[in-house]
Design a protein around this nucleic acid. Sequence first.
DNA 1: CCCCGGTTTGACAACGTTGTCCACACTCTA
DNA 2: TAGAGTGTGGACAACGTTGTCAAACCGGGG
Lengths: 346, 346
Amino acid sequence: MAQTVRRPAPRYGNRPTMKDVAARAGVGLKTVSRVVNSEPGVTVETERRVREAIDALGFRRNDSARVLRKGRTASVGLILEDLADPFYGPLSRAVEEVARAHGALLINGSSAEDPERERELALALCARRVDGLVVIPAGEDHRYLEPEIAAGVATVFVDRPAGGIEADAVLSDNAGGAREGVAHLLAHGHRRIGFVGDLPHIHTAAERLRGYREAMAEAGAPVDERWVSMGPTGAERVAAEAARLLSGPEPVTALFAGNNRVTVTALRVLADREEPVALVGFDDIELGDLLRPGVTVVAQDAALIGRTAADLLFGRLEGEPARPRQVKLPTRLIVRGSGELPPAGR
Amino acid sequence: MAQTVRRPAPRYGNRPTMKDVAARAGVGLKTVSRVVNSEPGVTVETERRVREAIDALGFRRNDSARVLRKGRTASVGLILEDLADPFYGPLSRAVEEVARAHGALLINGSSAEDPERERELALALCARRVDGLVVIPAGEDHRYLEPEIAAGVATVFVDRPAGGIEADAVLSDNAGGAREGVAHLLAHGHRRIGFVGDLPHIHTAAERLRGYREAMAEAGAPVDERWVSMGPTGAERVAAEAARLLSGPEPVTALFAGNNRVTVTALRVLADREEPVALVGFDDIELGDLLRPGVTVVAQDAALIGRTAADLLFGRLEGEPARPRQVKLPTRLIVRGSGELPPAGR
DNA sequence: CCCCGGTTTGACAACGTTGTCCACACTCTA
DNA sequence: TAGAGTGTGGACAACGTTGTCAAACCGGGG
């Protein structure tokens, strides 16, 4: 059994402090601070002595104390929805890049798509006094951030707008992208096109559905409401719905998948079928080019989105004035084969 | 131009402090602290008044100050190699789960496979006084962490052992997994099997190569050194090497891919070829089951690895004694088709 | 030798929180 | 009614750092 002596005093497992360094180097406390922060006004000889003491003791500045004193932390938080989603890799990397360029540390956390967790995480980061926050919302209501924003925490929402408050947001052109994707199917002769999307109250899902309707309307193709399926994007429901759309006397000849998870499930369903069914998905998927046929998708530029959000954030931090801004970024249709299949016989 | 008045005082953009709350509620400072921390010894009426003041002012405790005072931060850092790698999603989630169970916040950062960045990030997290660190090493030398570990920062390495220091580590059975994968190919009649892996000084790469050699030796199959290719796993080199192995008078009839990136590139190369070539990859890949044939892989259990590492970490934090420990976790062969192709004709 | 400019250095107070300790206001009992 | 006991509240110091400011030092010119 370990002798778990409850540490009586703080002192971080006895880490050396500037005071210790100062004592060892035989200089004043402030001189150590100056050396650590590369402030001017220290002779080379003094600096050498101080550095020697620092190395000998393994001293590392306590940033908590520094933050407490200075008021700024030079760090920003990024709250992702789901670390496993390949969409967020490049996004996070782009944000980190910009943060680095501004000398800030990026801390990221994942809400695991749980609104409560998003809230906890955001508030925990605020309690640590991050200077800013990039949030990919999991929840619908962000009023809990109001005091934080009022207190000066720069906040930018990504992928979906904030709920209940006015705040900066960087979004993809969801409606436009979906319209383009559906128009692509229409251009290849399809008239009966199914739409499988996420829950209708989710902003991106609603927007994409809107794009679908617009494209159909523009082409003068009537929409049978039974072709539209909105709901949770778990594999079971999506597979069942896709199967439903593809059966019956008048099955759809093409599918538009409302996000990458739907696309993957749809692919699995289609793989088991004889007749080819056209498919266009929103969001790129990994290995989309390796499948036969390749998967045609409407892709978002995750890196651009991340960079834009981060630029907006640091703009605010540098005192940019003005009211909250919504930036909408274009999507790109990537043609790989599955979207160009002609309607099945009959 | 924004009126960038340089903030004269800290005070975090004028956030309310406990003092402000106390003044507004007409109570003492410590009473507010007690309410905020749910400490006993406050009447319901007083608590109500305090909570009211907290809500009215939008007060949020300053954790920097708290940390400074208490000495522990209840947070651990996770340094990933590459956020975009699907392997790390479940791993990070597992670590977070365990951290949550221990009431700790998980902060994760990405080294982007850059040793210098790994170092910066690790030290930045230490400067913020995280209680512990889970590191997926990008670099080879971790002596820079020695003072931190000595000062009590619990540290666990994942996927590869630490370089230059003794520390806890959680690894997959790389040699065993590779041996199993190669044996699988041998069992399906292959004798000439190519191995395309990462740089030889990378621990996992070396171990997997060792497994390959062991399996070949066990089966009495001689290894032609021209079948082994170790180096950077960028697409160009891997594609070129795969092509080389598959050409010439005596081409290999099967490939073993040393990691998921190699697998993906190999798949692209094989997709352009007429004759089927068997393939087994180390690491699972997304959609591996959707391709035709499905991709047979040696999979690591990322969630288990993450959980194990986190358990080890919190064990240390709770005062577990003893010397650094290395845990080796088993891999699992997932049979999907590509590894069961028979050797091409001749 | 003294005083002057500039440079280098250190003492000290703050930042916002929590732990320690003591004071007060009750209640209950003798 | 006094005294002990209990339950509540607040004053104060400390955590490790940085900003302010003044002291000490140096060389050179009077």
